[in-house]
Design a protein around this nucleic acid. Structure first.
Lengths: 228, 228
DNA sequence: TGCTACTGTCACAATTCTGTCATACCATCG
DNA sequence: CGATGGTATGACAGAATTGTGACAGTAGCA
């Protein structure tokens, strides 16, 4: 969900406006003043999206886009071009240089965010929408539902992710810390005991269908989803 | 999101390349070898977009574009011209003949998709005229009416499109952002929370017939139309 | 030109979800 | 048997998400 967005923009006011809107919407803004600054940041950490000003001093935005596309590592990072020009030829040139979309200044924050969302959504690796079957349960990410012998079980977001992880990694024991990494994300600061509580909530949801026994406690190690 | 794209292209290799990229991006590719083949397909099912080769044997692409524009039914289908020529005069001629955009060969898949998306974005989403039946409701786009067990339900345009989308895509959860793309169109910039309001208005309209429970909230994910 | 219906936003209310405790429970081992 | 360390459970406050009513701007229409 949280995406890193690299802002390559010379004009300070616009850069701040962009950064403000980006963070406002829950993304993380990385700032760069020029193309070379952008390269520094990219080499340090690959962003999920690049907002690139068309007119940069020295090396132009189009040139940076070409360099990005030429580099194997950065080839697939989506780019949104910012341009003050409005005539059609420039838009076309922007697209030809490899941008995924473009916005003409002045732009509304709303349009900016809509385009960012759209580009990120298109680029998002088609998250495993495939239905998972394990231990008599059928979990469908697309429908956000669990089918237990015909009974539909609705789970909260965290329990759903937890069960999804278990069903895709059955029979193996995972420590609380591993589960936090896999289900919560590896950057969150949460007590390990929290896992216990969510395990309980998941078991509680599965109990009416007697599927709670699928989740086993391994004393001193963690938990396991066992189909047998 | 899913759009039918008619590819009118003589060269087999290019046609396959186009079809591959199109399907890769979630669109559906309809293939035609020449202009008359294109007419056959168009008469069978109106495509959302036409990828038209400039140089076709017999009747040229430009000629087909003119015929498409002259026909009432096909007048509004966007056209992207494919051309190997690069000089400006040809581009202008292509656009004047009614093409919405053009691409010169050789083109990058990225550019192609960017242009397809851009052209599709300009087009307002339109629905088919077929009556849809789901979850006890009967929705007829042609009459702009919803029949709920004999009771006629009047909906505003947006609520109607929303319900139509849900009924044609049941059981699956759609995020607010996806619903905006599908129901409002990819080109509008409205707040995601607006979806909530229209969901409420739709539920309110369905409530007298107790059909409001068909639309379910999936906390943290979006909404779902469930017939079960 | 007015009138009506529709839209998108907002502020606030209602609801659900989360992480953390404190406490009860249980297995194991001395 | 009691001690000990680990786990289950219920409660709870705050956070996050969604529902709802109101409102102003707009488009369509007579």
């Amino acid at each position: 969900m949280t995406a890193n967005i690299l802002v390559v923009e010379d004009e300070h006011a616009i850069q701040e406006l962009l950064a403000f809107n980006i963070t406002q919407c829950g993304y993380r803004a990385i700032e760069a003043y020029d193309a070379d600054g952008a390269w520094t940041h990219i080499n340090h950490e690959l962003p999920d999206l690049i907002l690139l000003d068309w007119m940069l001093p020295g090396s132009s935005g189009v040139e940076l886009a070409r360099r990005l596309r030429a580099n194997q590592r950065t080839r697939n990072i989506p780019i949104i071009m910012l341009t003050a020009r409005t005539d059609e030829r420039d838009k076309i040139l922007g697209l030809e240089s490899g941008a995924d979309d473009y916005i003409t200044k002045p732009f509304s924050p709303r349009e900016l965010m809509a385009r960012i969302r759209a580009v990120l959504r298109r680029r998002a690796p088609q998250m495993s929408d495939e239905t998972v079957v394990a231990g008599g349960l059928e979990l469908s990410p697309a429908m956000h539902r669990v089918n237990a012998n015909g009974a539909m079980i609705d789970l909260g977001p965290t329990e759903f992710r937890l069960l999804h992880f278990f069903m895709t990694h059955p029979e193996r024991v995972y420590s609380r810390s591993q589960l936090l990494d896999q289900v919560w994300g590896d950057h969150v600061f949460v007590e390990e005991r929290t896992v216990d509580v969510h395990i309980r909530r998941l078991r509680q949801a599965l109990e009416p269908s007697s599927f709670d026994s699928l989740i086993q406690t391994v004393r001193g190690s963690g938990y396991r989803f066992s189909c047998s």
